[in-house]
């Protein structure tokens, strides 16, 4: 019995690969996703043909992220790691402290309105630097909307690649983060953003 299941499991994998190749060829693979290991736990990364559309931090429920993609981008969502290889390599290199700037394209479909404005500003914060929520709000065109800027960071569909961890409280306290305050602190520490307070 286990023999049969094992063989069938293998068969399903093989059939799945053929299916993915054909879906990609025929333009039916709207969203491909893969899981990527990180020092903080497993990430889920998903991409359209335009770029990375969703990155889900550890402990954020991969199923929820996939549902959000199905509802907000397209239900044609398949596990197809090949498309995520460039993003995976960049993430690996980033966590090793080597990569300072992501080159991988971002698909902004899941960010709308003021959130998108805020996140475009956040995307330009360089490695090792931080901005306060108020500064981000101002650069996004609405200086008084620092709370909305915080909300926008919380709704960031592609954290790490769009570095919302570089947005901190005015007093220098790191503040909240989707991956937990510990992860935010660790990222800022790795980037050397904490050693020079006031910058």
């Amino acid at each position: 019995m286990s023999d049969r299941n094992g063989r069938q499991g293998y068969e399903m994998d093989r059939l799945g690969e053929g299916l993915l190749a054909r879906a990609e060829r025929e333009g039916l693979l709207d969203v491909a996703y893969a899981t990527v290991d990180s020092p903080f736990g497993e990430l889920l990364v998903a991409a359209t043909e335009r770029g990375v559309v969703k990155l889900s931090l550890p402990h954020h429920g991969a199923a929820e992220a996939l549902e959000q993609i199905a509802a907000g981008v397209s239900p044609r969502v398949l596990e197809a790691p090949a498309r995520l290889d460039p993003a995976r390599r960049e993430l690996d290199s980033y966590f090793e402290g080597k990569l300072k700037r992501f080159e991988t394209d971002v698909d902004w479909t899941l960010a709308r309105g003021f959130t998108a404005k805020v996140l475009h500003t956040v995307a330009r914060i360089p490695y090792g630097k931080t901005l306060s929520y108020g500064e981000v709000a101002e650069r996004a065109g609405n200086p008084r909307a620092f709370r909305a800027a915080g909300t926008a960071c919380g709704a960031n569909p592609v954290p790490l690649i769009v570095p919302c961890h570089r947005v901190v409280r005015a007093g220098g306290d790191p503040g909240n983060y989707g991956g937990g305050p510990g992860m935010k602190l660790a990222l800022l520490e790795m980037e050397g953003a904490l050693s020079r307070p006031g910058q």
Partner: peptide, 10 residues
Amino acid sequence: ATLPPFQQLL
């Protein structure tokens, strides 16, 4: 229609 991700069907 709140369609699940297609991978789930597979």
